[in-house]
Nucleic acid binder design. Structure first.
Length: 574
RNA sequence: CGGGGUGUAGCUCAGCUUGGUAGAGCACUAGCUUCGGGAGCUAGGGGCCAGAGGUUCAAAUCCUCUCAUCCCGACCA
């Protein structure tokens, strides 16, 4: 491809509303343009990358025997009412009406459609297991689209659905998909981790997420330094502290803490470490009541864990200041578990404390030297906090570290959630009707493009891995407009590279060298060839890999072979 | 949804406090010079100052409302 025939509207400066590096670089490299919040056009260069990602995903899906289909983006409300999600999914579901005022939605996911399709087409256990996938545009009316393509409302997703007679069969396909996903992200040249995850709105039982590791990731992942264990922080279990709780040493005291509200304030005021304080959070109970959750001062409430407790409203909703005053009689900054008339649930770590500090349920007062079982009853204990770095790994091996990740894939064992609601069944060997068991498997295809950039860039621009680069080689002729020799040599080399099947971008624009260099580095082409008078005199050409510090002069006669060997090298990051 | 910010040329931004002919750099067009790291000079083109009301002789500027958009929190590929 010639740059003169390709729209590459590069920018020197990033638009002010682009915050993260991948968003900035995709705009600057001329890959995408925004149409509305969370809705983007893909320009030629961006689309080439997107298609590369798609291609790898498609190959690996086909390889594990999944069959490609394409389902409608627009779906009738009836299916969603049947599954129960028309009401449940909320405003993230973009609802539309047709000319007859019938309700439709723009599909955010396709469990309903595929289940409807399969219940009509598959009748016998002999046709199972079967897996179907599509690569298709989804729309989720995100409460807060951000970071460009990373969290868009309209985005490209690969979604696959598998159907089984029983759980054993589902597990086999699930494992196969796990392997396929691992191959996909490996081939894409990404550093990633598989983590255990919450199932969220999709529902079902087991589920794992695939995260690309990047500091700008929106998710926190906990993983062991001594085993394969990795889990979303939402889900990672905080173990019961080892050893016995210390015996009380201090007596219960009331201390004046005027104006000290946060744990930060109180620990500084009393010159005590934060982990010697507890914080008490009031939340809505399951039935129109208020409950208290107690955590160690240095720990954070895990909303997912708390929401799963019986008695606590799900999702977790904090009590308002008015409700706190009504229930306890003081401001939220002075709450404590002693003497509360409401149900109290205490985190494992907080329950392990002795001689701790807590609010006295009076403004400006705290208790010190507090001990469970002496100053107040032994508590009801649960795991309700986020794990932190240094916690023991839940699998008993090593300690946890926390990293940030971008979720690019998610696999679920759905069980019969949709098939039962929509009565999708087959006849088994005995002629009995059996509800099919299902799995579903998603990959954020467009998000991968952004994630790859987050993980691979420098101050000059994007650094594509060979697997998804829009072009493998950039061919830059120096001063071609003036030099007949350079022009002829460049045209000849361009043809030779093309004949060798190499995706080459020939910069034939009448531009100064600096502009070409800057553009090609910005758009991240892995290999660069510079052809000039100087080199022609010596029969050499300059080569530089995108990550190389220095360029090298190579014999012109063998350059095609050299590039081929670089591409075959497999170290995709060259 | 709650909280905060921003809307002026394709992009980055000045101008607004103190109303009085709409600006700069980059990008774009033409010419000359330059030509291996985002060139220089000259001459151009391009704006309903987000929109709608108001105040005023006069509004980008002051007031009100609306819309868009971004950031921080509860959700997700």
């Amino acid at each position: 491809m010639r740059t003169s025939q390709l729209l590459i509207p590069t920018l020197k400066e990033a638009p002010a509303d682009a915050e993260v590096i991948s968003h900035q670089l995709m705009l600057r490299a001329g890959m995408i343009r925004k149409l509305a919040a969370g809705i983007y056009s893909w320009l030629p260069l961006g689309l080439r990358v997107l298609r590369k990602v798609e291609g790898i995903v498609r190959e690996e899906m086909d390889r594990v025997g999944a069959q490609e289909v394409l389902m409608p983006a627009i779906q009738p409300a009836e299916l969603w009412q049947e599954s129960g999600r028309w009401g449940f999914y909320g405003s993230e579901l973009l609802r539309i009406k047709d000319r007859h005022q019938r309700d439709f939605c723009f599909g955010p996911t396709h469990e309903e459609v595929i289940t409807d399709l399969i219940r009509n087409e598959i009748r016998s256990y002999k046709q199972l297991p079967a897996t179907f996938y599509q690569i298709q545009t989804k729309f989720r009316d995100e409460p807060r689209p951000r970071f460009g393509i990373m969290r868009a409302r309209e985005f490209l997703m690969k979604d696959a659905y598998s159907f089984h007679l029983d759980q054993t069969s589902l597990q086999e396909t699930y494992d196969l998909m796990h392997e396929a996903y691992t191959r996909i992200f490996t081939r894409l040249g990404l550093k990633f981790r598989t983590v255990y995850a919450d199932t969220g709105a999709i529902g079902g039982s087991g589920s794992q997420e695939f995260h690309v590791l990047a500091d700008t990731g929106e998710d926190a992942i906990a993983f062991s330094n001594a085993s394969d264990f990795a889990a979303n922080v939402e889900l990672a279990e905080a173990l019961v502290p080892s050893g016995k709780r210390s015996a009380p040493q201090q007596t219960l005291n009331t201390v004046d803490t005027p104006g000290q509200h946060s744990i930060e304030d109180v620990s500084r005021f009393l010159k005590l470490p934060r982990e010697q304080c507890v914080k008490t959070l009031l939340v809505q109970g399951a039935k129109d009541n208020i409950m208290a959750l107690v955590l160690r001062g240095d720990h954070e409430l895990n909303m997912v864990k708390a929401g799963k407790l019986t008695g606590v409203a799900s999702p977790v909703v904090f009590a308002t200041n008015e409700q706190v005053r009504a229930a306890v009689g003081c401001e939220p900054g002075s709450l404590g578990p002693i003497g509360l008339k409401i149900d109290v649930i205490v985190d494992r770590a907080a329950a392990h404390l002795a001689d701790f500090v807590c609010g006295a349920n009076q403004d400006g007062k705290h208790y010190s030297g507090v001990n469970w079982g002496r100053d107040l009853a032994e508590p009801l204990i649960a795991d309700i906090r986020n794990v932190v770095a240094g916690d023991p790994s839940p699998d008993g091996k090593g300690t946890l570290a926390i990293a940030r990740g971008i979720e690019v894939g998610h696999i679920f064992q759905l069980g019969t959630k949709y098939s039962a609601a929509m009565n999708a069944s087959v006849l088994d060997q005995a002629g009995q009707s059996v509800i099919m068991t299902m799995g579903c498997y998603g990959i954020g295809v467009s998000r991968i493009v952004a994630a790859a950039i987050e993980q691979n860039h420098d101050d000059r621009g994007i650094i594509w891995s060979q697997a998804i680069a829009p072009f493998q080689v950039a061919l830059l002729p120096m001063n071609m407009q003036k030099s007949q020799r350079v022009r002829e040599a460049a045209e000849k080399l361009y043809r030779a590279l093309q004949d060798a099947g190499i995706a080459v971008l020939f910069d034939d624009r009448p531009l100064r060298a600096g502009v070409m260099f800057a553009d090609m580095e910005l758009i991240g082409i892995p290999h660069r060839l510079v052809l000039g008078e100087r080199g022609l005199d010596a029969n050499t050409i300059e080569y530089k890999g995108r990550r190389d510090a220095e360029s090298q002069d190579l014999p012109l006669s063998t350059i095609v072979e050299f590039i081929q060997s670089q591409l075959a090298d497999g170290s995709a990051q060259k």
